[in-house]
């Protein structure tokens, strides 16, 4: 059973996505800010990370760059899951190594979950 780390400061959204993902038999661990995300990416060893951007303490972009800079967590695929769709943020996220960039207000929880399935079934990157 794959383990998903869901990092979002909004308690209601964590609840919503957790229900959707646990319904599909995934194990879900949550983080409420960037710092928790970075720490749990190492300690929980998730198979995939869903990462919000606008969060207190360390924001999602900074957290992504730290996760990708760390030997232990850099191979974990990260999907950005945010309500901010500015072009520069999207580009920044992809250049830092995010596998996808989802806008919460555009995708339903089911569509989000399908994206997770898709990423998890993809062959790991050669590097």
């Amino acid at each position: 059973m794959a383990k998903i780390l869901l990092v979002d400061d909004d308690q209601a959204l964590r609840q919503l996505y957790t229900i959707e993902l646990t319904g599909r038999q995934y194990e879900v661990v949550v983080g409420a800010d960037g710092d928790e995300g970075i720490a749990k990416a190492k300690s929980e060893k998730p198979d995939i990370i869903l990462l919000d951007i606008m969060m207190p303490k360390t924001d999602g972009i900074a957290a992504l760059s730290k996760i990708k800079a760390d030997e232990e967590s850099k191979k974990i695929p990260v999907i950005m899951l945010t309500n901010f769709g500015q072009e520069n943020l999207v580009q920044q996220a992809f250049s830092l190594g995010a596998v996808d960039y989802l806008l919460k207000y555009k995708v339903t929880p089911a569509e989000m979950a399908e994206k997770v399935v898709q990423v998890l079934s993809a062959p790991p990157p050669a590097a």
């Binding site: 209601a12 919503l16 606008m54 207000y105 339903t108 929880p109 089911a110």
Partner: peptide, 19 residues
Amino acid sequence: HELRAPLTVVRGATDMFLR
């Protein structure tokens, strides 16, 4: 942003219940 976050929850949840 402040409106989108709660609306995202409401829409996502209703979608889930309808499914």
